[in-house]
Write a protein that binds this DNA or RNA. Structure first.
Ligand SMILES: [Mn+2]
Ligand SMILES: [Mn+2]
Ligand SMILES: [Zn+2]
Ligand SMILES: [Zn+2]
Lengths: 157, 157
DNA sequence: AAAATTAATGCAAAATATTTGCATTAACAG
DNA sequence: CTGTTAATGCAAATATTTTGCATTAATTTT
C-alpha cells in the first residue's frame, strides 16, 4: 500500500546536513539567502522540537540575533510552502516543527502537565489512517495526530 | 487492553436526546439552567459539525437569539470541562465539535478544497495510538487525529 | 567593482482573537 | 416572595496575526 504522507526527504536532508549550503539551497528554490532565513533555520534545528512563532522569536532574542516577529511569521509561512517546516495544530495551540519522520507522518505526544511536545513517527498509525480515509471516499494528503496525556518525566515525579 | 479515551456516553446521550431535560441535566452537574446555555446546545446540535466560537455566535445572531461572544467563550469552556464538547485543533484552526464516538476518540477528515470537516470514530486507530503512547512511557488521556485531503464530493466534481 | 534592480525586512498600525474586571441580571434555594 | 450568588453583558485589556509602506540588502547587470 502506498504511503500518502508527503515525503519531503530532500529538503529534510538539506535542513539537517551538518554544513548546509544555504545559498545553494535558497537559490534552488528561487529565494534569496538572507541572514534572517539562516537564523530561523538555526533556531529550528537547535531547538529541535515543535515551537511557536513566538518561541522562535524569543530564542533568537536570547542569542542576540533578534529579527522582527513579523519577519518570523513571513519566513515560516514561506518555509511551509517549501515544505521545510510543517504547521501542526495541537491542543496547546499551533506549533511549528521541523519535518521529522522519513515517511512524513506528523505525530505528537503533548504533556498536559509540563507542556512539552514530542514528535513521533509511526507507520502503523499511518496505515490505519489511510484505511479510514479510503473507507470515507476521502483522498488523504497528510495526517496529523496528537496524543495528549502525561509524559514519563512528569509521571515519575 | 483498556481504552483510555474518555467515555462521556451519558452526557452525549443527553445532548442528543430529542426532548432534552435541560434543568435536570444542568442540575446534575451543579450548574444553573440558563437561556444562553440552552441556546448554545441548540446551536451545536443544529449546526451538527465542528464550529468555532465565532460561528456559534453568528449562528445565534441569525436566529435573533444572540448572546454575547464572551458568554459563548465562557459557556463552551465550561461545556468542555464537563465533556459536553471537545475543542479540537485542526489545520484550519480550532473548532468545537459535539462529542461523537461511543469510545470518545476524536477524529476529523478535513477537506482542503471545500473546507468541510467531518468527524469520524475508529477503534483501530485508538488502539494503535495507545500502543504508541505506551512505548514512549506516556500516559494518554485523549487522542486527536486529523486527516487532511479531498472529500468525496470535491473529488467527484 | 559600482550601479541598478527588486526581494526581503523592519516598523507602525490595523485587524482578529481571546481574556479579564466589574456592574447588572436572573436562576433558584429557602 | 425574598435573598443569595452564579451567570451574563459590556467595556477594556491582552494576545495574536496580518497589512501597508518606507528602507535595507541580496543579487544581477553593467
Ligand atoms: Mn501518516
Ligand atoms: Mn482514541
Ligand atoms: Zn510532562
Ligand atoms: Zn471537499
Amino acid at each position: 500500500m502506498q504511503n500518502i504522507c508527503i515525503n519531503r526527504g530532500t529538503l529534510y536532508d538539506i535542513l539537517y546536513m551538518h554544513s548546509f549550503d544555504s545559498t545553494g539551497f535558497f537559490r534552488s528554490v528561487g529565494l534569496r539567502d538572507t541572514l534572517p532565513r539562516r537564523l530561523v533555520i538555526t533556531a529550528l534545528t537547535e531547538i529541535g522540537r515543535p515551537v511557536s512563532h513566538k518561541e522562535v522569536h524569543e530564542w533568537l532574542k536570547k542569542k542576540r540575533t533578534a529579527i522582527n516577529l513579523v519577519t518570523v511569521y513571513r519566513i515560516l509561512e514561506k518555509f511551509e510552502t517549501l515544505g521545510l517546516v510543517h504547521k501542526q495544530p495541537t491542543s496547546g495551540g499551533f506549533v511549528l516543527c521541523a519535518l521529522s519522520a522519513e515517511h512524513g507522518h506528523h505525530g505528537f505526544l503533548s504533556c498536559q502537565q509540563c507542556g512539552t511536545v514530542e514528535e513521533f513517527a509511526d507507520p502503523d498509525l499511518c496505515r490505519v489512517e489511510n484505511a479510514i480515509a479510503r473507507k470515507a471516499g476521502f483522498i488523504p494528503a497528510s495526517h496529523l495526530s496528537e496524543i495528549v496525556g502525561i509524559c514519563s518525566t512528569c509521571h515519575a515525579a
